[in-house]
């Protein structure tokens, strides 16, 4: 670790250094996990766009708004769970077969999407 020399540029340098270290650490993650991360990012960005839209026009079909946002957040949560379970470095889930986790993921998502479709109106 490089110690910052002066306090004025320390925070920005720190942030940059942090960012670089984060990036390099992240590139070490396996592709499978990166796929899941990408998926989560996609879901969350979709959710954010919907929230911005709602802030602009009001929450008129509130059920549709909730349904849309919930589908994104729900599936993001489920993806995060899958990541935790599939990640080989997690000691707790060593005994759990990744396929089993995936099967759960699929099942939960299907149920989630049924609920979303019903609530969408």
């Amino acid at each position: 670790m490089v110690k910052p020399s002066s306090s004025s540029s320390s925070t920005s340098q720190d942030a940059l250094a942090l960012f670089n270290s984060l990036r390099s650490a992240y590139s070490a993650t396996p592709t499978a996990l990166k796929i899941i991360d990408l998926y989560v990012g996609f879901a969350v960005s979709t959710a954010i766009i919907q929230v911005v839209y709602m802030a602009l026009v009001g929450s008129f079909p509130f059920n549709s708004f909730l349904s849309g946002v919930l589908s994104c957040i729900g599936t993001a949560v489920l993806a995060v769970c899958l990541r935790i379970q599939v990640n080989k470095e997690n000691k707790e889930f060593k005994d759990l077969a990744p396929e089993r986790a995936f099967a759960d993921f699929v099942l939960c998502n299907l149920v989630l999407h049924l609920v979303i479709m019903n609530f969408l109106g």
Partner: peptide
Amino acid sequence: FIPAAYPYYGAAFTMMTGF
């Protein structure tokens, strides 16, 4: 189909596709 809710419909469908 309420036009104001099209983004939400779209979101649900894109999520399904993404899934």
